[in-house]
Design a protein around this nucleic acid. Structure first.
Lengths: 222, 222
DNA sequence: TAATCATTCAAGTAATTGCTTGAATGATAG
DNA sequence: CTATCATTCAAGCAATTACTTGAATGATTA
């Protein structure tokens, strides 16, 4: 054999890591974790050109992280398997635990000396069942419609600024968004806390909640 | 700010993935999962030149995956935190689940149509407690000495070929090695099965066993 | 203090990667 | 069949990466 099996294996494993090694592809994966989508949609959401997004998506497919199927004239990409979500999560955990730069950025977002601890999904589920929290889904409408936590209220950051005066200042508020790579919930919590609210972020985002096997509902906000 | 916090974060996460995206660095991490070591040792074990290994190790350090300290004239590198082991494991799981190439290589190693299922570490622990298995540690002597599963017998592939005739052919044999990137246990199991033994691989390797919180002992083989 | 050893640095190269642009392909609708 | 739309392909460029070589640094030992 021309190369040893060990080296061939390592090359394959490196290919998977390689696929995760570009910000553009991480954005695409984050988006795909919300729901499957066509190339053009993914390109628009991530701010990439269509040709560029297509090439990145093909690279993700070569690495086995996503699959695609044709639907009419569109090609729909989706995550190959849900372990990708765990992989993305672990990657961000490592970065947050080990890279000072990352904690700096996250603390900067919170607008406080140290960001408040996020609430675990298990805790949130309990408090939701008890009717004790107001839950905000800080994502675009279409992602909310594709799946959200039951009882969540869809609100973009712009909406939040508008609606802040109408919120009950005594309510306990929890916000979530796309997942560990998304900063919407961080930003929402920062605004809320600056306005005196008791607000926290949920750990992870909708994909992680779904992965836990917890209920998800679809459809527009009322 | 010149770049948005979101982009800055993604760049950091990509940096971690980037660190995993080269076969040479995966080898170094695999080695470091066995035990901390000096640059020269790591270079020798992985077949890299010292200068090259040093550069790869620095890249791993920049990504927060390893740390280093000076000990006399040597610099000792070690894994920054044990989550790296989970990350490496997840990477190989993804590759094995999604890349046909990988399953081909692994099946090729087994010498059978499909590789036999590995035994879980929990199952192994039970059978060990019952004294029902012969456990082989297929790694170099120094790695065995740095830590091994209690009751394991250290044996390189060369040793195995030599000692095959002396093994009890009715014994149930389990082999393990460095972890998911290491093929020694695969190869050992293939030889054993070709010789009529009832042999299986342990899932993962010593680092995973240690991560489970199971006992490990150090010292030379007797 | 000088010699030695392990590691790191610096410069050069060959190869790879990410992105852009414009053309080609594949599927549908008129 | 032709026009249209979404996606992919191909070529080209700038930037980055992996590896090599040889010199520089830092810590020990004679």
């Amino acid at each position: 054999m021309s190369t040893s099996p060990k080296q061939a294996l390592l090359k394959e494993y490196a290919l998977v890591a390689q696929a995760l090694a570009a910000p553009a592809r991480l954005m695409l994966l984050e988006q795909l974790a919300q729901s499957e989508a066509a190339v053009e949609v993914l390109a628009r959401k991530t701010g990439l050109t269509v040709a560029n997004a297509s090439q990145h998506l093909q690279q993700l497919r070569r690495a086995g992280l996503v699959t695609s199927r044709r639907a009419g004239k569109a090609v729909i990409y989706r995550l190959q398997n849900s372990r990708s979500i765990a992989l993305l999560g672990l990657l961000s955990e490592m970065a947050e635990a080990n890279l000072a730069q990352v904690t700096d950025i996250l603390d900067g977002l919170s607008g406080e000396a140290t960001a408040p601890e996020p609430i675990t999904r298990a805790d949130l589920a309990e408090r939701l069942a008890a009717g004790a929290v107001t839950l905000l889904d800080i994502r675009p409408e279409d992602e909310f419609a594709a799946g959200h936590i039951p009882g969540a209220c869809n609100m973009t950051l712009a909406d939040l600024d508008r609606l802040l005066p109408t919120l009950d200042p005594k309510a306990e508020v929890v916000a979530y968004c796309r997942g560990p790579y998304c900063i919407y919930a961080h930003q929402a919590v920062a605004r809320l806390r600056q306005n005196g609210f008791n607000a926290r972020r949920m750990q992870g985002g909708l994909p992680e909640w779904r992965e836990d096997g917890r209920g998800v509902c679809t459809g527009q906000s009322t």
